[in-house]
Simulated scan of single mutants.
Amino acid sequence: MTTTSGHLAAPFAFARYRDGDAVHLGLAAGDRIRPLAPEDLGAGGLNGFLAAPDWDRLQDIAEADGPWLPLDSVELTAPVEPRQVLQTGANYRTHVIDLVVAGLDKDDPRSPEEAREWAGRMMDERREHGEPYFFIGLPACVVGDDVPLVLPGYSAKHDWELELAVVIGAEAFRVSRDAAMDHVAGYTIVNDITTRDLVFRRDMKEIGTDWYRGKNAPGFLPTGPFLVPAPFVEPANLKVRLELNGKVMQDATTDDLLFDIPALVSAASQNMPLLPGDLLLTGSPAGNGAHWGRLLRDGDVMTGSIEGLGTQVVRCVGEGQ
């Protein structure tokens, strides 16, 4: 059974679902889903379609009779097949201000309010004159919420970071901010799991961060349930919410992004071409486990939702349990 709400808000969206050992690409519309073959897409597969999406073609399919199934009768998995995953760090203004203020020296003479104002001015200066901060994730970590999140036994400090993820359409290489949205095919939800005590190297602090070990374990990028086409999403002010065992931990909107989506796509495309189907994560708002002093445990259930993109439910299992 699908772990989504069972109904899609957008007129239609891509999803992928299991049929025994096979995984099929499907078109979800309302509370139904149907398989999509290459002849339906007019392309060899999902990424081929995203390279030059024809949304009218899919609208016609969504309105037609055919082999529809109840959406809640299938098990959804990750709706994308990226070749590259780029992740954005320190990109929610309030979250970064919280981190800066929390890291101030205890002898700092400023009040918390003065420190927040100072940190806010720093963030505004960064937004005006700085650049986004990217690192690379492994596509093999992308899974659906049909796969339990196994918490590796080498740490007890695994954390959540719910994020809006951009799905690239037409290849983007050194595109401008003004042209960037022409290369966005759609959006999905990603929970960027992080092992906190592996992010910074202890053996040689001068090296700095170790994102490979800190973020790339099996299943550390729960994704989906849907790939919602860009024409149906206004990404500038979406609600982002994560609950842990029913308690709200993250609750923000994307209008707090330091660098918006055109800025992110443009900056990320300056080094390497972004390919159709690639994921570009936009950063996570305040409220992760490190903030609350409560990290993931065996038996935890994370319910993550982004306005208009559905809901994913990720169940945590301790390694060896």
Rank of each mutant, 00 (worst) to 15 (best):
A263D: 09
G214Y: 01
P225R: 03
V265W: 05
N216D: 03
P152G: 03
V184M: 01
D178Q: 15
Y212F: 07
P235Y: 05
K247D: 14
K215C: 01
L162P: 02
A268F: 01
A185G: 10
L244N: 04
D197G: 03
P225V: 12
V184T: 03
P152C: 00
G214S: 07
L164T: 10
Y187C: 12
Q270C: 03
Y154C: 05
F232V: 08
G169R: 12
A156D: 14
A230D: 02
A267D: 00
M204V: 12
L149E: 02
S176E: 05
I193Q: 07
A263R: 14
E163W: 02
L149C: 09
G277P: 11
T223S: 06
A179L: 14
T209F: 01
V166E: 00
V166M: 01
M249N: 04
Y154A: 09
P235R: 07
E243N: 02
G224M: 04
T188M: 09
P218Q: 03
V167W: 04
P152S: 02
T223N: 01
R177N: 09
A236S: 15
F259D: 02
T254C: 11
L258S: 14
N237C: 12
P231I: 12
A263C: 11
F173Y: 14
F259M: 06
P229I: 10
I261M: 05
W211L: 07
A172G: 11
G144L: 08
G277Q: 08
P262E: 00
F173I: 08
G169P: 08
N191R: 08
N237Y: 05
Y154N: 10
L221N: 09
S176F: 07
A165Y: 02
A217D: 05
A180G: 11
P235S: 06
V248T: 15
M204L: 13
V150S: 05
N245Y: 00
C141V: 13
V184L: 04
F259P: 02
V228G: 10
L151Q: 10
V166H: 00
A217F: 11
V199Y: 00
A185Y: 05
L258T: 15
H183T: 14
A230Q: 11
F259K: 03
E163H: 03
V150R: 05
M181T: 14
K247F: 06
D251G: 08
A217V: 15
N237V: 15
D145L: 11
L258C: 12
V167G: 12
P225I: 05
L274I: 08
L238F: 08
A252Q: 10
T195S: 15
E206Y: 10
V175Q: 02
N216L: 01
R213F: 11
A170W: 06
I168A: 10
